[in-house]
Structure formats: structure tokens, C-alpha cells
Design a protein around this nucleic acid. Sequence first.
RNA 1: GCAUCGGUGCCCGAGCGGACGAAGGGAGCGGCCUGCAAAGCCGUCUUAUCGCGGGUUCGAAUCCCGCCCGAUGCUCCA
Length: 458
Amino acid sequence: MIRLYDSLSREVVELRPRAPGEVSMYVCGPTVYDVPHLGHARTAVTYDVLCRYLTWRGLDVTVVSNITDVDDKIIERAAAEESTEQEVSARFGDIYIRELGALGVAEPSARPRATEYVSQMVSFVERLLARDAAYVIDGAGVYFDVARYADYGRLPGRDPEELRESAGARVAVDERKRDPLDFALWKAAKEGEPAWDAPWMPGRPGWHIECVAMSLGLLGDGFDIHGGGSDLIFPHHENERAEAEAAGHRFARLWMHSAMVNVEGEKMAKSAGNFRTLADVLALHDPRALRLAMLQAHYRSTMEIDETVLAGAAAGINRLDAFARRVGASGALDTTERTADTDAARTAFVEAMDNDMGTPGAVGVIFELLRKGNVALDDGEAEAAASALHTVRDLGGALGLSLRDSSPDEAIQQRVDERQEARAARDYATADLIRAALADEGVELEDTPTGTVWRRVT
RNA sequence: GCAUCGGUGCCCGAGCGGACGAAGGGAGCGGCCUGCAAAGCCGUCUUAUCGCGGGUUCGAAUCCCGCCCGAUGCUCCA
């Protein structure tokens, strides 16, 4: 039984897909006006792991993750660069996809762009107008009428009255709105901004509507999981929910929110100026180290990512790879043979993961099995070690963590062999010379009872 | 202020009523192994005052109340 925390009911609930055996999931992607940072990476990794695990458990998963390519910030950036909105969003969209791909985030089943869904958004707004859940303000746009949605405020756990009090604290409220909480579904075109035709006035999509159009459009009513970063709970997700349900649709069955990444105790954000780009981290570390660091914290806990954390995770990745090399050097062949240890590990792994994606516990299980495999190797039980390795690979795969396979390199192998000959002849001076030379090239040697293995150190 | 989530060994971070004599990773130290390393294993720091004070319970890191501290959200946000 797979259980997940549902942000709407505020409890861990059993995942009960609308269609048995199939899970449909929508993950709010970024607005592409700049390069991705670690926060984007954490969110993407969280849902990537969920998708991989559900698939590993035998479910047929469909993931839709959007890219929002019309928005105030994109317009600003395009203006600042004297470029176009299309160019800016295409550029950052490509970077986003490439860098997350490098992190091992699998391509979603569909990655819609907001601009591809404008006509659906227009129809959606019409439907809301027809149901009297929205109204037009001439020259300004079309607004959602919050009063028409009785459940408003449940997702963020707030009373609409309280929400109303703080509305306008940061942005001036348009006097013509019926309620300060009302928000734009469609924004009237301004000079020099991208615009599309619409029955009310030419303009561009307002807030939250793009995700509703894309999620319902691609996954249909009552899709299973809607996820995103916790900073989207309000207003973004609550307003999506209001729009969809006020239009008569059954929206997401389960809401998930991943926690923020902090830097020195503060949320990483562009506005705070403390963000680290994904590219910066990827330039310094194995992408698997970043993923492991993220897996070692629960997705609903705020986590700190700094050099200490990254270096620690990188050391963990080295252990994983070293185990694979050791087993490889033992000559034992890959085997699906089960042992008491691998069975116990699988059970514990599933138990941890089924419980609201307990990746830290799941990673713990993997490392425990790794240690047992190393002990088996020390005891000369290569077969048992190979079984452990096979399971480590399988479980790691369910989390998107792979072990590095050494790539053969004849030139290096030749020198390793030369060193072995020297060692056999007890000519340790020569042997150490070769080892030091290889070390200078970033190649580290490990002597095992069955031969010497080597690895590249980055 | 209101809402939500937290405060666990040197660091990160699980656990969320009894198998806790608190997982796992990292760091330090000692040992074994090794020609020396690396890798690995074992031990150790670690009897972790589980933020503080009360309470419930046969039993609490886990539940309840109060307090202190922090993060996030309250129409830019992943």
C-alpha cells in the first residue's frame, strides 16, 4: 500500500488512482525567464523519484510537466535584453531541460508550453464567464470571482477573510475588482507585449490558468496527483483549484508539495540573491551526488545544500561505485539470485518508500546492503556480494541513482599491468612511480586480491 | 499577527507510543587488512539531557498543553 501526504487533507493517505494500476500526475514546472537553480532541481528530482518508484512498483505512470513561457518576468527579461519573449523562453527552456536531464530527471510523458494552450485557456475563461464565476473589467481583463468558490482557502488552510486582509499588502488592489482576492484570468494587451485574440479583448493569459488548461487537457478530470514546490500552495495551486472546480471539473485527487532548499538558513531565491544555479553545482560535482544529497532528506523537509553536504554525498557515491568495482574485480558475474540479505533489503526499501516516499530510509537500506556485500567480499563470498550488488543497482535505479561502470582504457590498463609486473618482482619503487604518475592524471588505483582496479577521480 | 512545517551525537539527516541499547551518510580518532597506499571491515567519539517545562501512559524522541527558537506562505517564487 503506497501512502503519500496529501496537502489538502493534511494527512498521509493511501494512493488510490482513478484507474487501477495507472497514475496520472501533473508537476508544475518553471517559468523560464532565467537559469534553473537548486530549488528547481529539488522539485524536479522529488517528482522524478516518485515517478520512478511508482513505475518500479509496477504502476503505469503518466507525468505531465509544463513550461510556462508567457509571463511578466519573461516580458521584462526580453525587454531588458532587447530580445523577444520567444527567444528568452526558448533559451531558458532548453537550458532547464538539458540541466535537469544531466541530473537524471527523466523526460515527462508530455511537456506542454503555455503558449500552445492559449485557445484552451480562452475556452476555459469563457466557461467560467458562462457559469458566472468570472467577470470582465473593460480595458483590464477578465477576473475570477472568488466569492463563487465556497471552498476557497482550504488548501493554504486559511480563512478567506484573513486572506482578504492581507490582500493588497504587496500589490495595489484594482478598485474595480469585486473582491480584493479576485485575480486575473486574462490580462488585456499592453503596448509591445505578446497578445492573442479573445472574445473580450486581445491579451494574454492571466494567472494559474495555464496549469489548469494543460493538466485537465492532457490528463482529464480527476487526475491523480498534482505536485509542485511548497511555495506554490498559495496562491498558485489554490487558484488553480478554484478555477478548475468553479468550471465544474473534478481537479487533482491528491496534492503534493516538496519543501524548499535553504542557503544558510534562508530560502534560496532569486529575490534573496542567495541562489546557486544548477550549472554551478553540476560543474563541481557528480550529478549523482546532488541527487543523493536530496534523497537523504525527506521531500517535505526544508533542506540545506552547501559544500559540506555535497562533499558528503559525493563520498557516498564513491562508496557505491567502489563496491561495484570490488565486485567486478572479484570476477563474480551479475546474478539475480536472492539471499536473505537482499530479500530483507527489498522489504525494508519498499516499506520506507511506501510510507510517503521515505527516501532517507530507503537510501539507508541501500547502504546497509552495500556494507553486507563488502563483508561478503571480505569473507570470500563473491556470489553473495554479486547478489547484493545486483539489488543495490535495482533499488538505486528505483530512485534514479546509478552506479558507475568503469569504462575500459587500454593505455591506462597497460601501465597498470606494468606496475603489477614490477610489484610481482618486488620492485616497489617502479610500482610507486607508475602509481604516482597515474594519480597525477587523476587515475587512482585500488589493489584487490584478484587484481588492480582503477578509477578516475574528478 | 494568522497558517503550515520543524528543533535529534562534530555536520547532514531518519525515526513519529514498546524490536530506540535512536537508521543511514559525512567528518575525526584507533585497529585489522595492504610492500606502502587506496578500497574494505571492526571499534571509537556515541549512555545523542531526542529545544525547554509540565502532563497522559505500564511505557514517550514519538501523544497532549504551555513556552522558546527557526523555516516557509500570506498574490514574484520550485
